[in-house]
Every structure is written in C-alpha cells, then in structure tokens.
Design a protein around this nucleic acid. Structure first.
Lengths: 342, 342
DNA sequence: TTGTAAGCGTTATCAG
DNA sequence: CTGATAACGCTTACAA
C-alpha cells in the first residue's frame, strides 16, 4: 500500500515541471507542445496515475458533489426521485450524497451541516424541518438549493412544487363525477404542508358540491416505514366503516395507505370497486400490481428528480440566477379501483 | 458571498497561532489551556466558523465518505439495503455516495474510478461487471471493499453473501411439502450467479423428489424498472399456462415477478392459492400488501446493508484485517399465497 | 511553450 | 502549553 503517485512524481520522471503535467492531465486548454503532452500522458498511464481530486477541489473550491436530503429512500416515491437526480448528476460528472432525514429535523440539520463542511455547493432537499433556520443561513452564504416537494419561504432558491391541492381536488372531483356522495378521506398526520394541501383540495371539492367532508387522520408518525402507512390505512378504514352510514368511496393521501384501505376492505368481504371505490395518491409503480389496479393521482417522481437536478446544476453554473419556481401538475391515472356509483 | 472564515482568521482575532486554533477546533486531545480553548470556541461561534473538510481530508488522507454501487435504487430490495448502510454510516459520521450502475458494467467502472479519485476509501458494491478487473486493481491499491449480494473471486475483501441456492431449495421444498408435484419456475434472465443459484436450489429440490423441473426464463434484460419484471412475470405465467398439464404451483425468482404471476392468474379467473399456489423470493414489504399476501423467502435487506457497512467501517479501522465471508441464511415467510394441494 | 512559486485550509512536526 | 513552519496534491498567476 505504497503512496499513490502524484503529478510531481510524473513531472520528475518526464523531466518537466509539475505545472506542465497539471496542464495536460487536467485537460486544460492551456497550450502544451504535442510531444510533451503525449509523453506525459504515456507516463501517467504507465504509472497508473490516479488524480487526487481533493487537491484539485481544495484549490478550485468546487467539489463536484451534490447533496440530497429526503425523508426516506425506502419510500418508492423518493427512490424514483433519487434515480432521476442521479441520472442528471452523472451526465455532468457529479456525485450524489444521499441523506435520509427519517422525518427527524435534528438529523436533517446535522446532515446539512456536514455536507456544507464537505464543501458541497449544491443541495436538493425535501425538508421536514419547521423553521428551516439553518438551511436559510446556508443559502445566504452561497449554498445552491433546490427545494422539492415541501415549500420553503425564502428568496434565492429554486422550488419544484407539486400542486397537491389541485391533486386532492382532482381526485375528489373524479369520485364525485362517478356519483359518489359520501367520500371518506384517510390521511397520515397532517403535519406537513403537502399533506394539508391534499386535504384542502379534498375539502374544497366536497364543499363545492355541498358534500360533507369525512376525514380520518392517523395519530402519530412512526419512523418512516412503508408498512406503517399500510397498517395505518387499514386502521383508519376500520374507523370509517364503523360509521352507521359508511362512505361509498375512500380517498387516501398516498398509494401505500390506499393499499391498506383496499386490503382491509377485501378482508372484510367488501368488494373494491363494486361495493366501495378507492383512490390513491402518488402513482408509484406498485399501484399497477395490486388487485384491483389502483386509480390514483400521479406525481412525476423520476422527472421531478431529473428536473430538480438539472435546475440545480444550472444554478451552480451561475448563468441566470433567476430563482425559478416550478409547479408540477397532477394527473389523474384511471385504473380499476374506482367505479360508477349506480 | 464573501470568503468563508478559516482557522487563520480566527487565530488572528484571538491573537494566537492557527495551530492552536486547529487543536481546539478539531477536538484534538492535544493540551490547550482552558482559557484559550474557550476563547477560541467563542470566537469560532461568533464568526460562524465552518471547517473546510477538504483541507483536513487532503492533509489526513481520509474522506469520511463511503461509496455504494448497486444496480438500481428503485428496486425496493436495494433501497432497504441502502437505508441500512446509511444508518450505520451516519453513526460513525460517514456520508454515502450512491451510484446506480443500472446493470451497465461501463457505468460501474466509471463510478468506481471517480469515487477512488475522490479519495473514497471504502466501498460497498453489488457488482454486475463480468471480470471485475478494475475493482480488483483498486483493492490491490488499498480500497476497502465489501461485496454484497454478488460474489467476487478475490482475497482481501469482505463478502456478504446470501444463500440463494438454499433459498430456492427451501421454497421448492415447501411447495413439495404442501403436496405440489408440478411446480413451475419463472425467472429473469439467468445471467447472474445469484439467479442461477436460486434456480439451482429449485432444480435440486425437484430432482431430489423425482420431480421434473419446468422453467420459464425471461428473454432479455431491460434497464431495471420494477414494472418490467412484473410484466415479465405475467408473460411467463402465460407460457406456463399454455401447457396442456399446467403446474399447480409457481415459484418466481423475485417478489415483483411473483406479483406479475398472481396478477395474470387472477385476471384469467384462476384463484390464488385455491387453484394455483404462488411463491416469491426477496421478502419486500409490498408482499404483505397484495392479495393474497405473498408467501416468500426473506432476504434480510436492511440488516444486510447495516452489516455490510459495519464490516466496512471496521475494516477501514484497520484492526483485524481478516477478510470475513459471511453467508446470510434465507428464511421462509409463510403468508397466504400457498396452500395445501388436496 | 515551459517553469517557478504561491497558495487553497488543514494538520503535524518540531522547537520553544 | 504554544507557535512557526512544512507539508497534503493540485492549479494558476507571473516570469522566462
């Protein structure tokens, strides 16, 4: 495990200065004679030269690394987002550090801090922190940030939002159009703006049609684990069903929860969609794999990640630093878990 | 966006040398008088000092960053693994760079190279490259590697294997014990050792009981996307069903494919498990969410990631560099997609 | 076209 | 206990 070879070693072997070596090996456009250039390249190859990017980065103050902070990679929505981010990053030779905040604001801040210390200059974040104080302070000192999924009140950053309210509205409207009047809404704890917005859309659509909202909210938030939301969906469905006059359609705040709803219904011998219709929210792939295939609202996850990363890289390129604010639109995906109320 | 403050700036303010500042701010155990220590800490806080880890890393030749190369994060198995890795890494203040090789050996090598250039000293990899030449060469020059999931023939690295063969064997035996005699096996392309091993287990169990193997193999591999394997499961099921004497049980090489099998069966009016039993492999959470809940072989994904990372960190600690080789055991998870053949 | 030398921000060695 | 000072590996004025 001897010391790796540096440009100085190569310089010595080639009888040139390390400056010249640097110039050719870093693909600078600085003029170097063809003879020397080839000689140096040959030697570098022979000696198995591996550049030490830390040196370069320290000097140039640029780390070619992006940070991503999300609640949990085990949520299929975020893993799609991540795939999109990484795809876009790779094309520009950036690496991506993945941080799961696990719904824990302290963890989020800790990651934020260490990432900045590593001189990461670009961050994509779906923040769950309340005040976002630390994040805002880093933005002020030059960190480039694209906020995703959860809104941040602050200038100087790009935001990629998703129109959750409209999504909730669209879903509910669809149910109403199918003739449903008693529509229940099951949701995780309404502690995040995104979740409140979906609920808002639901409420708006209901009251617009003179219908009464009927909501079941999960009590507390466990550490993010898919199966937790599934169970939660089952439980809340039970609550809804205990009503003397239960709903004919159930709308869930995300697909996994909707799986729980369908599961509970099926277990109780209630047919979906014949007896009760079910509607999800997210549009993860698994929705197509269950029975019946889930009608849902699609969030463009992969595209969202790709877009976020492209915007971030552009921002860091520093061209037009007009901090954009993009609102992605929901799309209704009709499959087979909703049907006309006869 | 003025220049961030360094230990030198602090030294100047405090009227001490930067050496002293470094000693207190890096939590070195080097003795510094209490008075100075507190003064420096106070100033650091006041000035909002953010250490530049690049400088430190360059000096100490250690990057506190790990690399992870996996086929695709959108596969729920790997996202659980990743969650486990990150959990273990965080506890030791390491960050994790995520690289999706997308089943592409060239991408894998490219990542490998750039990661090493970034002075990442530890790597967890589920390699899909054939020769693994580059990887082996890096191991020789001191890269610490934990190979996961896919075996690598080489000394000097830890491996966390999973007993795929036994898993396949266990699953098949279970089906046989339930009275099944015609058991079909549907699988993705048998191009990886892990997949061949599962198939081997299946074959072994079948021939051991004097039963005839019946395999359907997907033709080619698409870029990794969950829905592809699902469709593939559907299609192969169709093939199996076209047999004049179709199987009474179908075993799939992974859970998602099993979802496809169940879906196709259900669509054709064939009851699972009443008419045909279905068995999966992986044990992802979604298996519990479909109907009927999938009987499957559990790979300890999250634990695998955690273990891999712990081992890697230990290796890098450099204590006992005995390169372990751990074989994780499969576990049968009985749910409701398999039933006794009457 | 090439070389010299001064850093980038940190730690580590050595002397005081 | 504290302070100079020399690295770490690289880039980049500036000089030649």
């Amino acid at each position: 495990m001897k010391k790796p070879i540096t440009i100085h070693d190569i310089a010595k072997i080639a009888n040139v200065s390390s400056a010249t070596v640097s110039r050719v090996l870093s693909n600078s456009d600085y003029p170097v004679s063809k003879a020397l250039r080839e000689k140096i390249q040959r030697i570098a190859k022979e000696e198995n030269y591996i550049p030490n990017l830390l040196g370069k980065q320290l000097k140039t103050n640029s780390s070619m690394t992006l940070g991503v902070i999300i609640p949990s990679i085990s949520n299929p929505f975020y893993s799609s987002v991540m795939l999109g981010i990484e795809e876009a990053a790779r094309k520009k030779n950036f690496h991506v550090i993945l941080c799961n905040s696990l719904q824990n604001p302290e963890l989020e801040d800790e990651y934020l801090k260490t990432i900045v210390e590593k001189q990461v200059k670009g961050l994509i974040i779906s923040s769950i922190s309340k005040d976002k104080k630390l994040l805002k302070s880093f933005i002020k000192t030059g960190l480039n940030v694209v906020a995703m999924d959860q809104k941040i009140d602050e200038e100087n950053l790009c935001q990629i939002e998703f129109d959750y309210r409209k999504g909730g509205y669209l879903a509910t409207k669809h149910l109403i159009a199918k003739g449903h009047r008693r529509i229940g809404y099951v949701t995780s704890l309404l502690d995040r703006p995104s979740r409140r917005s979906i609920f808002q859309g639901y409420s708006d659509a209901m009251s617009e049609s003179g219908l009464e909202a009927r909501i079941e909210e999960a009590e507390s938030e466990e550490v993010y684990k898919g199966i937790y939301e599934f169970d939660s969906g089952k439980k809340l469905t039970g609550n809804l069903l205990s009503d003397p006059n239960p709903p004919t359609a159930i709308f869930a705040c995300n697909d996994i929860m909707a799986f729980g709803v369908i599961n509970e219904l099926t277990l109780r011998g209630i047919q979906v969609p014949d007896d009760i219709s079910v509607m999800g929210f997210d549009g993860i792939d698994f929705g197509q794999m269950i029975h019946p295939p889930l009608t849902t609202i699609k969030q463009p996850d992969y595209e969202m990640g790709k877009l976020a990363c492209t915007m971030l890289l552009e921002m860091m390129g520093g061209d037009s630093s007009d901090s954009l604010n993009i609102m992605l639109q929901p799309k209704l995906v009709e499959r087979e878990s909703v049907r006309e109320r006869s």
